[in-house]
Computed example of a mutant assay.
Amino acid sequence: MQLIKKYSSVYLRAGLAFSYLWEVADRLGIIGKHGQPHVGWGDWAHFLDYARQTMAFMPAGLIPIFAVIATLGEGLFGLMLLTGFFTRVAAIGSGLLALAFGISMAISFGIESPLGYSVFTVSAASLLLASLPDYKWSIDSLLNKNQQS
């Protein structure tokens, strides 16, 4: 049990970080082209079509702006979580971003959509990560060690 307690933050950080970074890579076409196996969007245009569906309740002119903000947030939070740099800030940001995404999905597609894709679970996991007292194998832990010396 001690081992789980000690390294659960590493698992949470990695799981969240790789999920965010995968989605960003997908919408930028890094994983492959649209229509290929294991590719969701494959390019920015297909992602933007999805963003328009997900945020259909918003003014059309704001949707591309929010799509860029979401992508930058996912990329930044993903890198911060992966490296453990300002982990608590990244985890809170990740939790709020996922919550906003889940609410948007629920409004546009119904509650089964964010529940089926575990979007609220990602949000809750991020907020749980933010509540942990320390982060093993992170830049934060290295900085804290150096400050204590």
Rank of each mutant, 00 (worst) to 15 (best):
P133E: 01
L76G: 08
A130M: 09
P64Q: 10
L21D: 02
Q147K: 15
F18Q: 03
W22C: 09
H46M: 02
G116W: 03
S108A: 15
G110S: 11
L28R: 02
P64F: 09
S113P: 04
Q2F: 10
V39Y: 03
S113G: 10
L3V: 13
H38Q: 12
M1K: 11
G40P: 00
V10G: 07
K5P: 05
Y117A: 15
S123Y: 04
I65L: 13
L12R: 09
Q53N: 12
A90K: 04
A25K: 03
G78Y: 04
I30S: 02
A14S: 11
L81Y: 03
F120T: 00
A90I: 01
S104V: 09
Y7F: 13
S8N: 11
T83H: 07
M1H: 11
T71L: 04
F47H: 03
L72D: 01
A91Q: 01
G95F: 01
L76S: 13
F120W: 00
G95M: 04
A90F: 06
W44V: 08
S94Y: 00
Y20E: 05
V68T: 02
S94D: 06
V68R: 00
K145N: 12
M55W: 12
V10E: 06
M105K: 00
L127P: 02
L48K: 09
I107Q: 06
G35F: 07
F86K: 14
F109S: 04
L72I: 15
S8M: 11
I111W: 13
Y50M: 14
A45L: 10
Y135S: 09
D26T: 02
S94T: 12
T71I: 07
I4R: 12
I65T: 12
G78E: 02
I69T: 09
M105S: 05
A67K: 03
Q148H: 11
I69R: 00
A56D: 11
Y20A: 06
P59Y: 08
A56I: 13
Q2N: 12
Q2V: 11
S126C: 13
W41R: 04
G29T: 04
A125S: 14
S126V: 05
L12W: 00
N146H: 14
L132E: 05
A100D: 08
D26V: 05
A14D: 05
K33Q: 12
L115W: 01
Q36K: 14
T87C: 04
G78K: 00
A90G: 07
W44H: 10
G35S: 11
L79V: 14
R13W: 04
G78V: 07
I107T: 09
S94L: 02
G29N: 06
L97A: 10
L129I: 07
W41A: 08
R52C: 10
H38N: 13
L132G: 07
G102I: 08
A45I: 09
G102T: 07
L143Y: 11
R27D: 05
